[in-house]
Write a protein that binds this DNA or RNA. Sequence first.
DNA 1: TGATCTAATCGTATTATTGCGATATAATTA
DNA 2: TAATTATATCGCAATAATACGATTAGATCA
Lengths: 109, 109
Amino acid sequence: MGLTKTEIFTFEQNQLSVLLKAIAHPARIAILQQIISANACICGDLVEELGLAQATISQHLKELKNAGIIQGAIDGVKVCYCIEPKTWKLLDQLFGDFMRSYVDPKGCC
Amino acid sequence: MGLTKTEIFTFEQNQLSVLLKAIAHPARIAILQQIISANACICGDLVEELGLAQATISQHLKELKNAGIIQGAIDGVKVCYCIEPKTWKLLDQLFGDFMRSYVDPKGCC
DNA sequence: TGATCTAATCGTATTATTGCGATATAATTA
DNA sequence: TAATTATATCGCAATAATACGATTAGATCA
């Protein structure tokens, strides 16, 4: 049917998948790296840095914002984006727990 | 156009996004958790555990396999799936580096 | 106020994803 | 060999995602 059955899964499974899906795109990874490396924030510089149209960058920023991974502050004519620390920590926690739940082989198929 | 411009991004950006995209679905997270908790491997048990059709589970397994996150070994009539340790480590490394590149606020917008 | 600059949104074309019934494949058992 | 069991694949319908030109909205500057 083309519709994910979210009601079947746990809150945490859905929560982690939403956060990961927001990051799981090379353009959004590049945007986040740019935001992080610029220490503070950026805005339309991203359009120049990456080779994508302004509308496309804006859309990616919106998705990252919807997922709560970044936040945008209006600064005059520009908009300054930066990481949302709370969500970043949450993601680190959720994904860390998930990854650490697997402890090596010691016998498999 | 609806086609991700992979040629614009670095190998690592694309690599990480492929791995994350494979995991960024609640059903696939549930499948991985099931595989991990069963220590060894599983196969069609997943169809019973999760509430999805056999064709759907098989498709999700295929995607996880294509990304290199799991491997399947034929065991008679059944197929035994388990985590691919190398890819798991790679993901842990790539994502860990990515997450750690952000070091708290100390002044933002 | 009018011009300018920045960013968001709309509309649209293209492609990908999700889910499942039906069918095919492959190994095992009777 | 025929029946059974376990998976994979095909085909399809519905929905989501990607990208971008064009337009809109909002703030700043002359």
